[in-house]
Structures are given as C-alpha cells and as structure tokens.
Design a protein around this nucleic acid. Structure first.
Lengths: 170, 170
DNA sequence: GACAAATTACTGCCGAGGCAGTATTCTTAC
DNA sequence: GTAAGAATACTGCCTCGGCAGTAATTTGTC
C-alpha cells in the first residue's frame, strides 16, 4: 500500500500487479476462511466440521463410493481421508464395508443416522453460501466460478511446464 | 462434475446452488492451493515458504513494523506469527529490536541479507501470480477481486448477525 | 504360472495454524 | 498513586492436512 515502485507504462508480458502483491491470493484466502469458519460454526451444533460434512454429502449424492474415489474427487490426501472417515464412523454416521470382488477396496455407505442428519447439514451449507453470495446475480456467480476455474487450469499448466509443484501436476 | 440436478429457473430467496454444493468454496480452495503450492515450489530454492515470503514482503514495504501490525494486516494468528518470525530471524533475514519508548513492542527490520534476497523472491511471487492469471484481462482481475471482496464483506456481516463464527467478526 | 507394477487402505511423522493462557509493560480511571 | 484494564509478545496444546512408507490385493507382462 505505501511504497510503490515505478511502474512501466508497458505491460504485455507480466502485466498484472506490479504492486499489490498477491492480493488476489490474500482475498481468496480470506474469502475461503470466511466460508469455512462460517460453515464450521453452523455445523458445530451437530458435532461436525466442514470436511466431514463435505464427505458425507458427496457420499450421499453418489459422487464417490470409496475412499480413493473421494480423494480423487475432492483433491484430498488419502491418509487424511482415512482419519476423516474414522471420525464419521465413530459417530455412527458412516459404515465401512469390505468389497468381496476386490478385497482391497472398502465401500462407504452413509448410515441411517447420517442420512437423517443430512437435511439439516445441507441447510447449514446453503445458508452459509447464500450469506456469502448475498447480492450476487447468478451471472456474477458464474463469472466467479469461471475465473476460479481458469486460474486452476492455468496453475496445472504452469506446474506441468515448470516441472515441480507438488500436487497440481498430472 | 458428474451429477447435475435440474436447476429451477426461479431464483429469488435462496437462489444459488441447488446442487453443486459449495462448488464456489471448492474452486476457491483449489485455486488457492494451486497458488500456494506454486509459490512454495518457486520459493523452495531460497529455503522459504509462502508465509515467510509474505511477511518479509510486508515488512519491506512498510505495511507493518511489529508482529501485532503484521497479524492485523494479514489476519494471522499472533502465536503463529511469533514462530514465523523466529524462522526468519534464524535464517538471518530479519532482526528483532525492542522498542525503547514502549518496551512491550518489538520492532521488526528486514536484515541486509533479507533485503538482498527480496528481488528474487518478488520475481517468484509475480511469476506464480502471472502464471495463474494468464489470459485474464485487467478488468477481469478487477472483477475477481471485487467478487472476493464482496464475499468477505458478506461473511463479516453474517458473522456479526448470527453471533458466532470465530475470526470473521468485529 | 511367476514376477513386476499398480491400487487400495492405512499408519507414523512433521509442519502449519488456531486457541487459550502467561509475563511484561503501558494506559486509563478513580 | 494505585488498581483495573488493555496491549504486546510469547508459549503450550490441539487439530488438520500433506508426505512417505507399509501390507494386502489385483492387474499386467513375459
């Protein structure tokens, strides 16, 4: 905010924020943190956090049936996923069931208790999202999603080319 | 990606994502993670991570002079900040200097070694950001920032009204 | 058919970040 | 002038997520 290097009027290759740094990154971090803390606060009465809710939701919607599915779908670490599932199973919201054809895989099924809770959890989720998107026209939400999607794609491309970068790669 | 419920054309009160859940949240998380891992990869050769770079940068720009300043400015925990500063001091990039007028505060100054590194670190930061914003028109970047800013403001408002929510509040 | 490679779930280990509590110092109120 | 409150920096403690490594099982190759 204070110091400001001289900005060349030119701008073709690296045109973005000569100053202001990673403010896009900061804003994304804060917006995401606000969503997460809001969701955690709404879910606290049910003894769940945002990640546990997200997993339960994906399973209920049939987006995934196994831990590996969930990890691929949610870009989540497999080790951490095991622990999330442990917690959900402890709470009786989830059941693990070994597959008989392929004995490596464990099918995940939302237990009746979990299914009973889901409507309330979903309500909490949409409430938080609606709160944060108040005043947004549908077209604006779409534009925001497209911007984020483009950044993600750009990041993948950059990661593939510069070699390194932990998880964004192929 | 896979499932997609029919979307009602109507939209007044809770119009946002009848299905697709918190996809805005997911996209933000992934975009942010891509930025962070890209930045960490670029900074790894210098033995720094994204947070350490951000702190060094803010100090160099005069946005903050003390740990408390930094925490307010960056919405960061004071305890964690102490540890970040410890690491930077260990590496010789930063110096702590107790204030004489108010002996509670410790002024933070970027050490010569840190100042010497900063141009390279800045280059890494802008490189990562440019990579992720490739193909974005300046107006699009502005729009993205405004969207994020509105979400943050909405989140603060919601937090103030629903009572809870950890850090978003006043 | 046997052996290498891949896949799945899971387990330590580590770093990061948030929260609560502490000691010190300053400010404010009476 | 003193007591209460606030502010600053710092310290444990806890949770979470990523990484690497492991055991069991399946798939693919020759």
């Amino acid at each position: 905010m204070s110091r400001r290097a001289a900005i060349k009027a030119e701008s073709p290759p690296s045109a973005h924020p000569p100053e202001g740094g990673l403010s896009v990154g900061y804003l994304m971090g804060r917006a995401r943190a606000s969503l997460l803390s809001g969701l955690d606060a709404e879910l606290a009465p049910y003894g769940l956090n945002a990640m546990q809710y997200a997993v339960l939701k994906q399973l209920a919607e049939g987006s995934a049936r196994t831990a590996a599915d969930l990890c691929r779908y949610m870009y989540y670490d497999t080790g951490s996923m095991t622990r999330v599932l442990d917690r959900l199973e402890e709470k009786g919201l989830l059941r693990r069931e070994r597959c008989r054809e392929d004995r490596r895989v464990v099918f995940l099924r939302v237990a009746p208790a979990g299914r009973a809770q889901l409507p309330r959890l979903r309500a909490a989720g949409t409430r938080v999202l609606d709160d944060h998107l108040k005043g947004f026209a549908p077209a604006e939400v779409d534009a925001l999603k497209r911007f984020l999607g483009r950044m993600i794609d750009n990041g993948k491309f950059a990661a593939d080319n510069t070699g390194l970068q932990g998880k964004g790669g192929k």
